[in-house]
């Protein structure tokens, strides 16, 4: 109990830091604030991704396509129908969630790698679809999308995406703490035992997948109306891999680990891109290396490091009620 309480306070502290960060040099500059927006965008995606990969243990390789689907839905609704981006973003989430439902019903009866590969195919098919209906999407030429806010400054966008990150995190963490979360973890850790304990896996797998895809679509809507231009590249698998790397480095099965680590990682990567602008893709190499280091030395990722520190602190303070640290949540 005490541990959970303390962790919540720590998380609130981190949140406060993130919220005042744009006022602390060098983040007062527009370029740096743009990095912050990108970081929060990655954090929100990593949370939605880990909700699936870290709990039901299925990697949605088509994740970026669901982000892109939400982006295009919201973009097209705004361009062709004049619908407010705020509503469009929710519509984007709904469409992604619905396509997630179809994908889930199709793939989640398969296990592990087969489900992952099927989700990947669906993602590639979606990208192909967007590319091949240029009348609606303008294909690779790019779709110019109205922006979300009047202002062209990054600061208000930062607070919008931070709010979306908080909502994504709060909703998904709440689900994880419910009986649904217990079912997700049971299914992800031992399918046969979950079945033998009365859990209908397909039902919970699909619910999990739909929620993850819906948030991906909603977050994608933000992307559309922030950058103002959409190309099918938003759906590239390399974007999924970036999100995956952040989620895994943050710690599988830890939503807060993914959310927190996304900031230093994503900002560090932007920095690298500037330093090595002649080497495109250098950030993917960095992610790859970090991922390998994490897998070998700390499979629990950043979250496990924090938990280790936590129990070390508790142990080195006698008189404190030290209990065995509860498992990930």
């Amino acid at each position: 109990m005490l541990v959970r309480h303390r962790r919540r306070i720590a998380l609130l502290g981190v949140l406060v830091v993130a919220l005042v960060l744009p006022y602390i040099p060098p983040f007062t500059g527009e370029d740096y604030r743009r990095w912050l927006v990108g970081a929060a965008f990655m954090a929100a995606q990593a949370v939605a991704f880990d909700f699936t990969a870290g709990y039901i243990n299925i990697v949605n390789f088509g994740f970026a396509a669901f982000v892109g689907l939400g982006a295009y839905t919201s973009g097209i609704l705004a361009v062709d129908f004049g619908i407010s981006p705020w509503i469009g973003m929710v519509a984007g989430g709904t469409v992604s969630g619905f396509v997630g439902l179809l994908t889930g019903a199709l793939t989640l009866r398969l296990r592990g790698i087969y489900a992952a590969v099927m989700a990947w195919f669906v993602g590639l098919a979606l990208m192909g679809l967007i590319r091949n209906v240029p009348d609606i999407t303008r294909g690779s030429l790019g779709l110019a999308v109205p922006s979300l806010l009047e202002s062209s400054e990054n600061l208000p966008y930062y607070y919008v995406i931070m709010a979306m990150l908080i909502v994504t995190f709060a909703v998904l963490a709440w689900v994880i703490r419910s009986r649904y979360g217990l079912a997700f973890r049971a299914i992800g850790q031992n399918l046969a035992a979950a079945r033998a304990s009365g859990i209908n896996p397909t039902r919970y797998l699909v619910i999990n997948f739909v929620l993850s895809c819906a948030f991906a679509g909603w977050i994608g809507g933000f992307y559309a109306h922030y950058y103002g231009i959409l190309t099918p590249d938003v759906m590239l698998t390399s974007h999924t891999v970036e999100v995956l790397a952040i989620a895994y480095i943050g710690g599988r099965g830890s939503l807060w680990g993914a959310a927190v680590i996304a900031f230093p990682l994503s900002i560090g990567v932007e920095f690298l891109k500037v330093q090595f602008s002649t080497l495109p893709g250098v950030h993917l190499v960095l992610y790859g290396l970090l991922l390998i280091v994490v897998m070998i030395y700390k499979p629990g990722g950043f979250a496990a490091v924090v938990r280790g520190l936590e129990s070390w602190l508790i142990r080195s303070r006698p008189g404190d009620t030290a209990t065995e640290a509860p498992p990930a949540s």
């Binding site: 009986r179 049971a186 850790q189 046969a192 035992a193 304990s197 859990i199 498992p327």
Partner: peptide, 28 residues
């Protein structure tokens, strides 16, 4: 119908209590 396995199949990253909680939550 309850069943145990020849090779036990726990939920490895759940606590002992949570392991049993799963069946109490969904099995009855």
């Amino acid at each position: 119908l309850g069943r145990t396995f020849q090779i036990p199949r726990p939920f490895p990253h759940l606590s002992v209590l949570e392991n049993v909680l799963v069946a109490a939550t969904f099995g009855d």
